[in-house]
Simulated scan of single mutants.
Amino acid sequence: MYADRSDCTPFLVSACGSGPPGTPAVRPPVATPAPTTTVGLRLPLNVYLPTVGEQATGEYLVYRVQQHCMRGYGVRYLPHLSSDYIGTTVATWREYESRRYGISERTIAARRGYHLGEEPSGTRAPQVSTALSVPEREVLSGRAPDGRRMTTPVQNQDVPDGGCAGLAERTVHGDRTAKAQRGYDLVARLRGEAFDRSRSDPRVAAVNRKWSSCMRGKGFTYRDPDAAIEDPRWNLLSARPSRAEVAVATADIA
């Protein structure tokens, strides 16, 4: 129950937060919210990682430096790259993170099934490095096909250490230390371990059983939400979902 300060008696006054100066106030309990969606889900370990906006912006800036560097060697690289990339990437990552425990957006499920939401109109994916020729990839990576560092000038210019990709990383992120990288790796490992533990929690197992029973009542047999998403009948890389996929996804949400 929430604390009612009107019930404070003299001998309980300090517990009610009205004690002598310097006595820390006791905060009333706060009810745990019951979410109806996992969009915007905040996980405790995420405070040790860059936000999705920071990650997307950093990725875009790395691409921009790569593009400028490659242009200096006469290579037209990432011709469709624009600042729209940041917004599109943020939207995709946020939706992906919202599916940590299964889909939760009713409107997307009704329109897209288990497919990710459609990208904003007018955006085009940047060119991928595999579309480059072998000599162009050497400039990007700074490595010859046999893995050796490039020492031969290109367009009468030396190729930077690590190629244009290495130059871009250093320009945007600086020289990340091995200690910092170990920190990122640690957080990623802890996130994975926490997720695995949550799946084996008896409370989660009980909810999954209730979910599975509900789905059977709608004519679909799956042990848990992951099994529905991973149904081999769904081609999640296709442009549009099948009617069967939409039917399962909307029942899942319900």
Rank of each mutant, 00 (worst) to 15 (best):
D84H: 05
S98P: 11
R99Q: 12
G19L: 01
H80Q: 14
R94I: 08
G22S: 01
A31R: 14
C69Y: 02
E54N: 05
L45W: 12
E54C: 02
L78I: 07
T32N: 14
Q55N: 12
T92N: 10
G40E: 06
P21E: 07
V52N: 15
R99I: 12
T92S: 10
T57I: 08
W93H: 11
V65C: 07
A34G: 06
W93S: 11
E54S: 08
Y63H: 06
G53Q: 07
T38K: 02
T57N: 10
Y63M: 15
G53H: 05
H68D: 12
Y77T: 04
H68M: 10
Y60F: 15
Q55K: 11
G58H: 00
Q55E: 15
A31T: 12
A56G: 08
P33C: 03
P28G: 03
N46K: 08
Q67V: 10
Q66N: 09
R64E: 15
G74F: 02
L61D: 14
S82N: 11
T36F: 05
L61S: 13
Q66D: 13
T38G: 04
A25E: 13
Q67P: 13
N46W: 14
V65N: 03
V62T: 15
V75S: 01
M70G: 00
G58D: 07
T38Q: 06
P79K: 01
R94C: 09
G72R: 02
R71I: 03
Y60K: 03
L45S: 12
A56E: 10
V90M: 14
